[in-house]
Design a protein around this nucleic acid. Sequence first.
DNA 1: CAATTGTGTGTAATCGATTGCACTACAGCG
DNA 2: CGCTGTAGTGCAATCGATTACACACAATTG
Lengths: 348, 348
Amino acid sequence: MTETRKTPTIQDVARSANVSTATVSRALSSPDRVSESTRARVSEAIRVTGYTLNQAARSLRQRTAKTILVALPDIRNSFFSSILDAVEREATNRGYGVLVANLFLARSPAQRLQDYMLSNRADGLLLLDGSLDLSSLHSLVRPPNSVPLVVACEEIPNSGFHTVLTDNLSAGERATRHLIDLGHRQIAHLLGPEGNVVARDRLAGYTNALTQADLPVQQQWLFRGNFDMESGFAAAAHFMSLSVRPTAVFAANDESAIGFLSGLRQYGLTCPRDISMIGFDDLGVAAHYTPPLTTMRQPRELLGRMAAEMLIDILEDAEHRRGPMRIVLNSELIVRESTAHLPLRTSG
Amino acid sequence: MTETRKTPTIQDVARSANVSTATVSRALSSPDRVSESTRARVSEAIRVTGYTLNQAARSLRQRTAKTILVALPDIRNSFFSSILDAVEREATNRGYGVLVANLFLARSPAQRLQDYMLSNRADGLLLLDGSLDLSSLHSLVRPPNSVPLVVACEEIPNSGFHTVLTDNLSAGERATRHLIDLGHRQIAHLLGPEGNVVARDRLAGYTNALTQADLPVQQQWLFRGNFDMESGFAAAAHFMSLSVRPTAVFAANDESAIGFLSGLRQYGLTCPRDISMIGFDDLGVAAHYTPPLTTMRQPRELLGRMAAEMLIDILEDAEHRRGPMRIVLNSELIVRESTAHLPLRTSG
DNA sequence: CAATTGTGTGTAATCGATTGCACTACAGCG
DNA sequence: CGCTGTAGTGCAATCGATTACACACAATTG
């Protein structure tokens, strides 16, 4: 006799508790508007029927999906997945679901985001990728499609978007200064992707630090990179081809630093004996690399959590007319073993 | 005058195209049931109005969210995030959204999954975590809450769930045999988490290989581990305390292998000079570690893609009465520099 | 020519929860 | 006693798309 019953609805609960559906709904969403005895009856009825809310129905009526969309340039990258982790945690705590859109190799990223947002699947967008076409984003953010948006980790200059990120410029400065303090005078920079704002700021920090120390910025010591290991690996070959080789490298992130060191290894060079290396991010593997990597630690968890908080705050506060918010977090220098004092023995 | 117009609905399109909403709906979902001229008028009207589908309304009516839920033990782990990447790609291609639930440190994981599934937010569940309580899962999968479920990477024994995974047992065998082939006779295994089926299979493979080579399985050479770097690091201390030290280690995964090597480094031991090490997974960093890590490569992308395919196939095929499916993929031995022939010089 | 089939479209019910409005009952007050 | 205010509840409209059913009309068939 127990046929495959359909999922119980609020109607079933109402019938079982001998109240109207309106009362059940209120007992759930604003319990203080319902008498205690009724509330108890409803709770019991919910238990008996095994009722669970149909989110689609609620979304339709309330025009709210209780879901945020997180757009990442590449989930596989441990840096982003850590942030996603923190975002997911915060969102879950506040009753939101997390949809992910991996933009890596996607055909038309902006279009995809637009589809998602406008189809009422997500209430807000958390963007971890600064490389999107600004104009297509504007069509999302401007009326009539005013999608709540927070940009994290990356930044879109002059966009006026809400942003949470770390102070890449001063962190780049700090990293470079660390090398200078160790006595290095010939310091290269392994660049991040061209056009990436974060990478640009780290470069600017590098340049500042050199300039402040009266060291020249040498064009040939800016190595092409792309934030990934392969590009770091390739840069090592370039490094070997130089007539005058730097004694230290500041890499725009840990992944490329690791790729670079792995590349150097092919030529028999060892860190920190032959070269000092500082990275950026403090990925989990940095502490366990050989050698353990000196790096600028970004507070990933904090960053993800704050970005999620900010977005959800915006979503839940209809009166968010307080102008663009911008939170800048500090990075921290983590000294490990990949950086060392310049050897006293002269190299020439 | 251009007030904040509401999002255009199918009604607006119908009015603009001078047809009924039914026709608009049909023009979208089954174009061949609509005459060509009407179809053109509707397309034009959609363009003019800027209409986008309200997914909530569709979900409510069709009882389908066009979304899958991916549950992971820990997104930060690069192994899982790679799989998520592949899953997301496949799901997107087939028009599905991807919700993520990170079960790491979650209070009551099974409850969370249940909530998600029963609230009509997701149509199916892709489980990448084998450590969940089986009984709570059964309440999900059995009627009346028959949630379509595919388990990937991990396995839940005797559950009868659909599964995609690699052949951990034979891969564990292969890995161990590789060490034996290099002349090693004293081979340790750095275990995965207790109770984890995948870890258990890799251990079984290790045991098999030893037995086949007439080597004894020594209890004290089974090092506790947890699939993460910290546990590998800790195991190194244990290793140092042994009176007779193995010459090679098969680690249950790359992360713990890296942690272990990093631990050994503290004691001045170097791989592969002092010890050979083989890992499992072939994480991106494996190729760029120092030394580059020999490992068993799991076809992560394929695995993720197939799991997503399987789940969506099930969702879209109402008649999926073909019994539990089980796909086993092969891992591949990737020989790099962390394993070496046993040195001819005797250690005693 | 009548009967039949098929194509294209419209009408209206439906999915399940929320919520504006109306109503009852009762307490408090002058 | 009559009036007002408030707490608690129910009725029914609503969100936006889908779809069973009905119907009009053209094409095909016997």
